[in-house]
């Protein structure tokens, strides 16, 4: 998994400078996150970070969470009042700061949306380690259904079970019956996808 050190090292100079000042503020007062979090893209940029799947604004927001004191009480508000970019960063941050009881609530909220950016971010390492079997399977199925590439989903190697495979086969059968294509990465995940006993 990507580390704080790797994210920090990959930041462009302008973003590093802004992050340094902002980190000092949220270190002293976590409530400062409420007004610093939304403007990160304007101040630091939104381009690719140079680490696959990461943008500069995502990385700065996650690093800002790690710099805040007592961040756990701010997380629900940052997510509730966040726009889609802020929500995504909170979800990615769940693997970097301890969200206590709020973590799975935020994951569940994101999985209820139909926003591919949020659903993909929700199915990260944090969710892979904690979702119960049913919720995990439905999260994976929702990704497949929405066309989110499965390489964005954490934990498939250890959490794919017979029931998930059955659900995938059933999904593939429905698609095939409708004359619609089955996603390639599903074919790779499920051996013998078109078996008829599903």
């Amino acid at each position: 998994m990507t580390t704080v050190g790797e994210l920090r090292a990959a930041l462009p100079e302008r973003a590093s400078a802004w992050l340094e000042t902002a980190s000092a503020r949220v270190g002293a007062d976590p409530a400062a996150l409420r007004t610093l979090f939304p403007g990160v893209g304007r101040h630091c940029g939104r381009g690719p970070l140079g680490i696959p799947e990461w943008t500069v604004d995502d990385a700065v927001r996650v690093l800002l969470l790690t710099a805040a004191s007592d961040v756990v009480n701010e997380l629900p508000g940052l997510y509730r009042y966040g726009d889609a970019n802020e929500k995504r960063a909170v979800l990615r941050g769940l693997s970097f700061v301890d969200p206590n009881v709020f973590g799975l609530e935020l994951v569940a909220d994101a999985l209820r949306t139909n926003d591919t950016r949020l659903v993909a971010a929700a199915m990260g390492e944090y969710a892979a380690a904690r979702l119960d079997d049913s919720a995990y399977r439905h999260g994976v199925l929702k990704c497949v259904f929405m066309g989110i590439p499965l390489n964005a989903v954490a934990g498939l190697d250890r959490r794919t079970d017979e029931e998930l495979v059955r659900m995938m086969r059933s999904f593939a059968a429905e698609r095939t019956a409708a004359g619609r294509p089955v996603p390639d990465d599903l074919v790779a995940l499920v051996p013998d996808l078109s078996r008829e006993d599903s």
Binding site: R34, T35, L36, F37, P38, G39, D83
Partner: peptide
């Protein structure tokens, strides 16, 4: 009380 959060949005 919630305005400061929104007044920073892009």
């Amino acid at each position: 009380d919630v305005l400061p959060r929104y007044l920073e949005k892009d």
